[in-house]
Design a protein around this nucleic acid. Structure first.
Length: 460
RNA sequence: GGCGGCGUUGCCAAGUGGUAAGGCGAGGGUCUGCAAAACCCUUAUUCAGCGGUUCGAAUCCGCUCGCCGCCUCCA
């Protein structure tokens, strides 16, 4: 399989360094609710991980929480709660969002505040090697001039980066692009002891430290949004490679395109965002996933209700084809669908840098074949199993909407009564029952084998 | 200014040299008491524009136009 590597700007054949794929994805700073931009990124990497496993790899997947930083401190102060309490609350909220989207949990979620010793070890190592220096107030900065290939990930050199820089010049720093590894605490801020001052880690250093600690000096895949390429990931490379002396720190850098709202990217700082919570009130998690995976992960995607609606309808077709929860007898005729060919088409698409859009195309092709074969009395069980299997690689459950168990006997009863009415050709009354149930979002379908019903798409 | 990317049918979206996947929508049909679901047919001679390379280009090259991201925190 091939993966597009941001570092080289090319698709490269993928081969893990060791027995298992070591994968690190930048997590969130838990200070506010997660939005669908987060959903997009984590769904994409969830699918990458699921697919790698589908292809027979063992994957070790690590994701961090930046549970201490300026924003958390500010926000906590405004809310009048301790920073850790705010972070804790938002982490819980994050998990509930991700779980709702059927995103599998990482193998570990290290937190910056719990990795201080490792962070200090890395910073000290960088100082010892001349890659970092302490300033008057006890902060420590990375010396970008000490890294000859600084800028290689964003394909810029120091001069180019500097010329467009909007960053303020700080008299403490040797170079404007030097960045904080350790920030000395101001009075009242959370702080940890260190050889340089009471303070807290800079934003970038935690990822290097955690990656080193949990995955080793060289890892296979490091992922995140394209907005993290500079400065975050650039700085991670500088720190990690300067510390270990080993290159490359990351063998495949993967970055997803950013979600847009209309014509601009969704962003916390711009205040334009839609929360996961809001989206899941209106659409199923399967639809959200299908919508996101319908375009290529490296392209920007515009959030739209039309797109979610389309995904929702398409999903219904996949559900129906997969069996739709109905109790149907297997057709009598032997299976005719070439499941191997479909599986290979799916793999062919996904092997090409996770081309989920094309892979989804193979799912719809399969759905059509299943429906056609089923109407001809062919046994479609194996094909349905494949459909569920492949959909599962994309994290689609194809689950029907559920209705409370309490209501089911009553619905069954009404359906039975209507069946009697239909036998007596009492169409008007029968139709009344059907439309009445439809009002309650119960959809009736009269099939040759009898009437079946399912939950519709109205919101509860 | 530097770096990166995008512009494909009504909408969304694959496709990076061999003659335009797929989804949604729309129209027609089959099935049905009528529906629903499903299936069948139709819906881009054309890929922002203009040149060039090639037997052949949406795909490669050049230019033009339009749009976006990054160079500050951000998935």
């Amino acid at each position: 399989m091939k993966i597009f590597n941001t570092l080289t700007g090319q698709k490269e054949g993928f081969r893990p360094l060791g027995d298992e794929v070591r994968m690190y994805v930048c997590g969130v700073t838990p200070y506010s609710e997660c939005h669908i931009g987060h959903a997009m990124s984590y769904i994409i990497f969830d699918v990458a991980r699921r697919y790698l496993e589908f292809r027979g790899h063992k994957v070790r997947y690590i994701q961090n929480f930046t549970d201490i930083d300026d924003k958390i401190i500010d926000r906590a102060a405004t809310a009048g709660v301790p920073p850790q309490e705010l972070a804790e609350r938002q982490i819980a909220q994050y998990f509930s969002c991700m779980d709702a989207l059927n995103i599998r949990r990482a193998d570990a979620y290290p937190r910056a505040t719990e990795e201080i010793p490792k962070i200090i070890e890395v910073i000290q190592g960088l100082i010892d090697k001349g890659h970092a220096y302490r300033t008057e107030d006890g902060s420590v900065y990375f010396r970008v001039k000490s890294d000859p290939d600084y800028g290689k990930l964003s394909h810029q050199d120091l001069d180019a980066l500097q010329s467009g820089a909007r960053v303020e010049v700080d008299a403490e720093k040797e170079h404007p692009l030097d960045f904080a590894l350790w920030k000395a605490a101001k009075p009242g801020e959370p702080a940890w002891d260190s050889p340089w001052s009471k303070g807290r880690p800079g934003w970038h250093i935690e990822c290097s430290a955690m990656s080193l600690k949990y995955l080793g000096e060289q890892i296979d895949i490091h992922g995140g949004g394209q907005d993290l390429i500079f400065p975050h990931h650039e700085n991670e490379i500088a720190q990690s490679e300067s510390f270990t002396g080993k290159e490359p720190f990351v063998r495949y850098w993967m970055h997803n395109g950013l979600l847009r709202l209309g014509e601009v990217k969704m962003s916390k700082s711009l205040g334009v965002l839609v929360t996961v919570h809001e989206v899941l009130e209106r659409y199923t998690s399967d639809a959200v996933r299908l919508f996101i995976l319908s375009s290529h992960y490296r392209s920007p995607l515009s959030f739209s209700d039309e797109g979610l609606e389309a995904a929702e309808r398409g999903l219904e077709r996949l559900q129906q084809a997969a069996g739709g929860g109905r109790n149907e007898d297997a057709g009598g005729k032997p299976p005719t669908i070439d499941v191997d060919a479909v599986r290979q088409a799916f793999i062919g698409a996904m092997d090409d840098d996770f081309n989920t859009a094309q892979a989804i195309g193979t799912l719809f092709d399969l759905a059509r074949e299943i429906n056609r074969a089923r109407s001809e009395g062919v046994d479609v069980k194996p094909a349905q199993a494949l459909l569920r299997d492949l959909a599962g690689v994309l994290g689609l459950t194809l689950a029907e909407r559920e209705i409370s168990l309490d209501a089911q006997p009553f619905i069954d009863l009404l359906v039975q009564v209507r069946t009697e009415l239909r036998k007596e050709k009492q169409w008007k009354l029968a139709d009344q029952v059907r439309s009445g149930l439809e009002e309650l979002d119960i959809i009736l379908e009269d099939t040759p084998k009898g009437t079946v019903w399912r939950k519709g798409r109205k919101q509860d």
